[in-house]
Amino acid sequence: MSEHKGVWVFSEKYDLTLEMLRKGREIADKLQTKLTAVFAGHNIKEKAGELIKYGVDKVYLIDNPALERFQAEAYLSVLHNLAANYKPEILLIGSTKNGKSLAARLATRLGTGCVPDCAGLGVNEEGRLIGERITYGGNAVAKVTFRSKPQIATIPARAFEKLEPEDRKGEVIELDVQIEGPKTEVVEIKPLETASVNIEEADVIISCGRGLEKKEDKALLEELAKIVNGHVGNSRPLAEDRKWFTEWVGLSGHKVKPTLYIACGISGVIQHVAGIRDSKTIVAINNDPEAPIFEVADYGVVGDLYEILPALTEALRKQLH
């Protein structure tokens, strides 16, 4: 076990890599070991050096046409080859859907444990990694540690902020590894219409749930959003059942941490609440006085969102100007 050394970071998403590097740096310093980024793709040599500015000691660069786009078996074989050879102690992998599946498969190949979606991360007195993740549908936070190495944790987007780039010393090591052929074939990619602004970064979010009767009524929220410079969000059923939108806030969607979150016509089921828990102030507008959302709100209004929202927009318009 003790032969395992160093903290590694990998994500197929560049921004997520940079975010993980902050945490990776912190852990590597605590363990007095090196921080390595595994950087794979095609025609990426120029970008590899940039990673050093974000806290990396070493970049393992694998530049190969087979890595042009994310392909599970290709990326898996690269990581497996490197990890089996160089034996990292800790491996942080970006928790995109592809990244998480990759982490699970890599952990299986290496015969080790994996803790997914760690929004918090640290090391204990014995130097073992401890991950914090939401569990039981948002009812609890679990602290989990490892009994095997490498310790593989996946990290969701925007859990950590990236470091400011600075001039540092580090090395880029280009490696040639055996790449496995694909077991599946991608036939089409349809980009999703995602919001132009990331909801995770919004300072004010006004969300609607099934209390909203028509898609067009979202305009009521948009009116308020204009006044408070906010962003409009929604609960999952509006995306999944009604197909009005493609994204949602909550455990299985976007986890947000705005200064102000206004939930309109949202009941406050645990999976939704799990995504808004880090908001500074939560306001609930719901016509059912028994709605559980009031239990997790700072300010609650029992009323019809179709009356309260326009009135609130008007009141804020007056009081803010």
Binding site: A140, V141, V296
Partner: peptide, 19 residues
């Protein structure tokens, strides 16, 4: 291969003021 150290409900300290 992993070990759950603790599982606790998050602290919710909300004001719960009804307007």
């Amino acid at each position: 291969k992993i070990e759950v150290v603790e599982v606790l409900a998050p602290k919710t300290e909300r004001k719960k003021i009804m307007i």
